[in-house]
């Protein structure tokens, strides 16, 4: 049976490029999501630090 070399090259090229594209996109999305989560979590921590003295004052008043 004759080998379809154009198909071989297509599988070879699209395979290498495809895997890199998917993994690169996944890298970007992972970096993006971790930064967003870091930001949200740090903001939450910041609020907790700010609200902590208020709670302490309220407790003292009580």
């Amino acid at each position: 049976m004759e080998t379809d070399w154009s198909k071989v090259l297509e599988v070879f090229g699209s395979g290498i490029i495809g895997v890199f594209m998917v993994m690169f996109l996944l890298q970007i999305l992972t970096q993006l999501s971790t930064r967003v989560i870091d930001f949200v979590e740090n903001m939450g921590k910041g609020n907790a630090v700010v609200s902590a003295p208020k709670e302490a004052v309220a407790k003292e008043k009580a």
């Binding site: 993994m23 996944l26 890298q27 971790t34």
Partner: peptide, 16 residues
């Protein structure tokens, strides 16, 4: 370290 995803892709080049 999400850059490591590229190493996972790099190894697949051998497969092709």
């Amino acid at each position: 370290n999400p850059k490591m995803l590229l190493l996972g892709a790099g190894a697949q080049a051998g497969l092709y």
